[in-house]
Each structure stands twice: as structure tokens, then as C-alpha cells.
Design a protein around this nucleic acid. Structure first.
Length: 273
DNA sequence: CTCCAGGCTTTAG
DNA sequence: CTAAAGCATGGA
């Protein structure tokens, strides 16, 4: 089955290549995207972006298509920050995903002090090393392991997959989630969710903000990594050095639009727009 | 060789 | 409480 959406505000490349998701690959004139055990093919055809999958509802929500992004883009431009205005104009079709929450936790534990190509490679090895391959109308693919499968794999496996010192974080957090699930995180407000996420081994302030934003739809989160720190220093002429304080400053400045603006800036800085 | 990548945990002050 | 050391890996 398939559905489409106005391409102006749904750009697959900008949505996928902005570092919020790691399991996707170019396919034909678009991308194949994995989330948990699901797969879709997304591509732009004329003025429509088309999503083909076995589950329309899941991917409609995944791509956040119930939200009007035109106001968000205008709000971003209203700050008159050159990099932000340029990025927002180019990234009008960048959507903040609603990803699988467990997958978010494990993926962003791997992301710490790491680079995107390597993160993608490690996750790919973990999926192919643990899960059995599945068939789809677009070819074979591997689902993401369940927490039980993560827990059963052991730290040595993650080491061999290239996770480095993060191996024990994955094993320990996997065991904990397998034992108690993450259902208790479902309906918390942003502040309580952040507090709870920080109790997992391998999740610090930045990863918690990413999980909250890309997994729990907490759009007032402003994750600060090395790239955002560069934006803060170079484009906003900021003088703070503590990332916690920088994050507090930026989320205060951009309020409920923080998550979207953070992605425009992250993409724009990395792409040197 | 050093520096860096969507930083965190642990330890010291 | 804050500051800094240590951490696996691979590409530039």
C-alpha cells in the first residue's frame, strides 16, 4: 500500500540525511527506510513524496505527517540568524521523525563520541548479526533487535560489531529494558522523561535529548553535540563552554520550536550551507 | 603522527 | 557541586 504528501514539505533526503536516523539506504530514486521490524520505500515523484510500505499508519506517524511545517519554517526564519534562515529555507521538507523508542535508545548510545558513517555501520552489523533476514517487496532486510535479543547478545558481540567501549552500555541497558520494559516512559512530561532517561547506562544529557526528540516527540528538546557547539560559538557568538548551559540557553531561546530549529542548524552546519 | 566524531562514566578536587 | 581523565574505533 502507499500514500503521498506534498513534496515541498516532505523531502526524503533532508529528513533522512540529517543525523536523526541511521537505518536507511539509497534505493532507485529514493530510499529504503527501516524502523524496528518495518520497512518502507520513500521517494519524490513530481510535487508529491510517496511512501510505500506494509503499514501506512505507522509510516504516516513515523514521518510526522500530521503536523503543519509551514509555520515552523517561518518561525525559524523570523530569528534573522543567517545560517538558520538559509538552512530553514533549504530544509523546508525536513521532518522530525517519530521513531521506535527502544531503537532510539540503543542507536544513540552508540552515537556518543562517534561519527555518523561509523554509527550506521555498527548498527548494521548488530542487526545482521542478531536478527534473521526478512523478505519484502523491495528485497531482503534485517529488523532491529528487540531488547531481549540485545540482552542475549552480550557485550563481546557488541565489541566485535565495532561498538568499542560502548559495548557494556548496550549490554547493561539491554538487560534492564528486557527485564522491565520502557512502558513507564510513555506518558511522562518532557522533564520527567529526561530525568528517567538519564538513569540508563550510556545515556547522558545529549543522548537523552535526542531520544526525547526523535522518539518521544518532545519538540522543546535542544540536543547539543559538537556541531551545535560550533554553531553556538561561530554563528551565535556565544561564550558559554558548558554544554548543559548551552542547551538550556538555546532551548530557552527557541522554546517549543527547539527541536526543529536544532535540526535545521545541525544539517546546515554539516552541509556548510 | 594527531585530531575528530550527534559524549558518557568515573574519579578527583 | 564542577573539572578533568579515560575511553574504542576508524577516517582525515
Amino acid at each position: 500500500m502507499k500514500f503521498d504528501y506534498e513534496a515541498k514539505y516532505f523531502n526524503p533526503r533532508h529528513t533522512l540525511e540529517c543525523g536523526q536516523v541511521f537505518r536507511f539506504k539509497p534505493y532507485r530514486d529514493g530510499y529504503l527506510v527501516n524502523s524496528a521490524d518495518k520497512l518502507c520505500y520513500v521517494h519524490t515523484d513530481g510535487n508529491k513524496t510517496v511512501v510505500e510500505s506494509g503499514d501506512n499508519d505507522y509510516f504516516y506517524n513515523y514521518f510526522d505527517l500530521g503536523r503543519d511545517y509551514s509555520k515552523i519554517v517561518e518561525k525559524a526564519k523570523s530569528y534573522n540568524i543567517p545560517l538558520l534562515s538559509r538552512s530553514a529555507e533549504i530544509c523546508k521538507g525536513l521532518r522530525i521523525l517519530n521513531q521506535n523508542r527502544e531503537e532510539m535508545i540503543f542507536s544513540f548510545i552508540i552515537s556518543q563520541n562517534n561519527n555518523i558513517p561509523r554509527i550506521k555501520g555498527i548498527i548494521e552489523k548488530i542487526c545482521s548479526g542478531i536478527c534473521t533476514e526478512r523478505e519484502s517487496e523491495f528485497g531482503k532486510y534485517f529488523p532491529f533487535p528487540t531488547s531481549s535479543e540485545i540482552a542475549g547478545a552480550g557485550a563481546e558481540f557488541f565489541k566485535s560489531a565495532g561498538a568499542g567501549y560502548r559495548d557494556v552500555f548496550l549490554a547493561e541497558t539491554g538487560a534492564r529494558i528486557a527485564a522491565e520494559s520502557i512502558a513507564h516512559l510513555d506518558n511522562l512530561d518532557a522533564e520527567k522523561l529526561r530525568f528517567e532517561l538519564l538513569t540508563y547506562k550510556g545515556i547522558g544529557p545529549k543522548v537523552a535529548d535526542c531520544v526525547a526528540l526523535f522518539g518521544f516527540n518532545k519538540c522543546a528538546s535542544f540536543p547539543v553535540d559538537t556541531w551545535i557547539e560550533k554553531v553556538y560559538r561561530e554563528d551565535l557568538k556565544g561564550g558559554l563552554s558548558d554544554r548543559k548551559k548551552i542547551a538550556a540557553y538555546l532551548s530557552g531561546l527557541f522554546g517549543e520550536y527547539s527541536g526543529f530549529i536544532q535540526q535545521y542548524l545541525f544539517y546546515g552546519k554539516r552541509a556548510n550551507l
